[in-house]
Write a protein that binds this DNA or RNA. Structure first.
Lengths: 243, 243
DNA sequence: TATAATATGATAGTAATACTATTATATTTG
DNA sequence: CAAATATAATAGTATTACTATCATATTATA
């Protein structure tokens, strides 16, 4: 069903919002013990974990606190997620899956490689809109969690083992899609994967800097990360399009 | 003394190594309760914290384990550092101070802005050499800790308070120095601070990717991060120099 | 050289974290 | 209505991240 819908020429927010309400973002099943989408409690766990991590930060977040907040038991949460690290992997995978969906949806039908890449950069670097709501998941807050906490999901001693288990597949697929778009424009550009990963990681970082270290970035209300990275990428590859 | 030495035209590794052995990298005094450079135990704490964090990772690292390792008492370590977070701030500040020193030393006497920036990029992105040893601090391992753990020093809920206290001054100064060099080449380039911060953060990230996600980078034994970022930056600003 | 100051070590203790285990009680399903 | 399943309640463990106190060793100073 998803594949068919992707070919629809309609590309407005309302249509996409409806689609996002009918499809399910698929994340690696190993992130959870029991699918949180399968029950009311599961959804409440996800919903309120986002609210709570956003509020107090991932480090101070515990299953006990979450249990108290949602009037449920700590041990019940453990039946859904092994530990809070796995929950973070679930949330981040969901986010990248959600973003990938918009990425593919927005660029799939585009013929011109230049415009396609421009649109791809826009989807990845633009702020998450308030109206993007998908059921119990608040994407605006989740986006902020990604900016402030995503690195913690892979800056661990277990990263290689977890990578083998496929916990970062969606993110990697996104980077590869972007990398391929760069190659489509300039097959001789020697660093497409590095440029793609620089965009994904760098975009989060520039948003972090605007929040906490404004002197280290030129991004602000007037200059968007989209503008900065569009300039950066199109000047780096061997094809210019109008600014 | 430092200032005078910076004007010396000599720029070889041996001279710099000797200089680094006579000067002291100054880090924010608030990172420690008692200066670890002031005693034997303090130096052992720093030395072995680097070895241990490198080995087991910052998350699993505790003062108790470190105490056992160096045959000292947990409570004695607490007399030097409030907690392991402050120790990480100390180590990372020291690293950036050490890098800043090399940055200034290598570029200070250069007249041509293009060559100067090229050298700056090289200093920041090149792998830390084994022969760079500075007393009890193993810079090669410390560099690896920076790659794998630096983000954790600022991805916290306390980042704004700690930023006000000056814990990130050295890093910020480095970004600003680089940003100014970019401006010196192209005063009209609109994103010098963003480009500078992208280099600092992006370089660490590309090294991380080569270690753990090689498919997401083009950097490897043949292609260096220096090459990638030199290309990226000089194509982005309005002045090209020979590759 | 005695004494005071300082540094380090040993031991104990606390609150919180990150779970696991067991049993009880709802709720759903066949 | 019984059986299966989901959730709740309670308790317990090992570890972490400290703090406090007291003892002992080392160093500085009068």
């Amino acid at each position: 069903m998803i594949v068919i819908l992707l070919y629809l020429p309609l590309q407005n927010k309302i249509v996409m919002k409806h689609l996002l309400q009918t499809i399910k973002i698929e994340v690696n099943k190993k992130t959870y013990l029991k699918d949180p989408e399968s029950s009311d409690l599961g959804k409440r766990i996800v919903e309120h974990s986002i609210l709570m991590i956003h509020k107090i930060g991932f480090d101070a977040f515990t299953f006990r606190k979450l249990g108290n907040k949602i009037g449920s038991n700590e041990s019940s949460i453990y039946r859904y997620f092994e530990n809070k690290h796995k929950l973070l992997l679930y949330l981040t995978s969901w986010y990248w899956g959600w973003l990938e969906y918009q990425f593919v949806f927005a660029t799939n039908s585009m013929a011109d490689p230049g415009n396609k890449l421009r649109k791809a950069i826009e989807v990845i670097t633009k702020p998450v809109a308030i109206d993007a709501s998908f059921s119990h998941i608040n994407e605006v807050l989740l986006n902020d969690i990604i900016i402030n906490e995503y690195s913690k999901s892979y800056l661990t001693k277990e990263v290689d083992a977890e990578n083998k288990e496929g916990y970062f597949e969606i993110y990697k697929r996104l980077v590869m899609r972007l990398s391929e778009m760069i190659e489509d424009i300039d097959a001789d550009y020697p660093y497409p994967a590095s440029l793609a990963s620089t965009l994904l990681e760098g975009s989060l970082h520039q948003y972090f800097l605007t929040q906490h270290f404004p002197s280290l970035t030129n991004c602000n209300k007037k200059i968007s990360p989209t503008e900065y990275f569009t300039h950066l990428i199109f000047n780096s590859i061997n094809k210019k399009i109008d600014a």
